[in-house]
């Protein structure tokens, strides 16, 4: 028993030093050396390309709020917006420390497939899109993601927003569609995951256009 305890203690200390710190620090060193940009969070001038942002509150003179840019998934939008009643009050804007109105962490809504709340929220989002001039919002655009800040949308999600953006920006639908095509990342090696568009990069390209 005593010998087990002594050996356990030695093993715990060795593992703490080696697998707790040497591993992570050596990993950090290699990562910073080889992949500095990625290791630090893929940060660009306007944010991380891996962290979704809220585009719903962009002011568009003469047009509805948010109609002159492409939107991502409605994490922290509409019925999932920041919760002012929470304590402490929760700021919105796809803050990675706020997900679906809950402070403090990333995460999905966790609403079940037969949840009345999910049904009501989805209906509210359909109405929200109709008001913005998107006639047939796709499932991605009326449902929230697993992380709470999905940075991407599918090409179909972008295409249904084309009439809205064209009307508010004056850019022709054909130009927007070719912009979407250029911004589409195909599935890796043609089969890993799905093809997607990074919403931040798409909107940066859109801003550069006009």
């Amino acid at each position: 028993m005593l010998i087990h305890l002594r050996r356990s203690l030695v093993m715990c200390v060795l593992c703490l030093i080696f697998f707790g710190f040497v591993y992570a620090l050596a990993g950090t060193g290699v990562a910073q050396l080889l992949f500095t940009h990625q290791a630090n969070g893929s940060i660009t001038a306007n944010g991380s390309t891996l962290i979704g942002q809220n585009w719903a509150a962009v002011r568009c003179p003469g047009h509805p709020l948010g109609s002159c840019v492409f939107h991502g998934r409605p994490d922290d939008t509409g019925p999932y917006a920041a919760n002012p009643k929470a304590s402490p009050p929760v700021p919105g804007g796809d803050n990675p420390l706020v997900a679906n109105g809950n402070a403090g962490e990333s995460g999905g809504t966790n609403l079940g497939p037969r949840s009345k709340v999910l049904l009501a929220n989805t209906r509210a989002l359909v109405a929200y899109w109709h008001k913005l001039g998107v006639a047939n919002p796709t499932p991605d655009l009326v449902t929230t993601s697993g992380s709470g800040y999905d940075p991407d949308i599918s090409p179909a999600d972008a295409l249904v927003q084309v009439p809205m953006v064209a009307k508010a920006t004056g850019v022709s639908p054909a130009t927007l569609r070719s912009l979407i095509a250029r911004q589409t990342h195909p599935a890796q090696l043609g089969f890993l995951g799905s093809s997607y568009i990074d919403v931040l990069q798409l909107n940066e390209a859109l801003a550069a256009l006009h």
Binding site: G41, N46, Q53, W55, V58, G93, N95
Partner: peptide, 14 residues
């Protein structure tokens, strides 16, 4: 980080 395009301010945990 603050995005000038949409005015969103984020605190990104790493």
């Amino acid at each position: 980080i603050r995005n000038a395009l949409n005015g969103v301010t984020q605190t990104i945990p790493r």
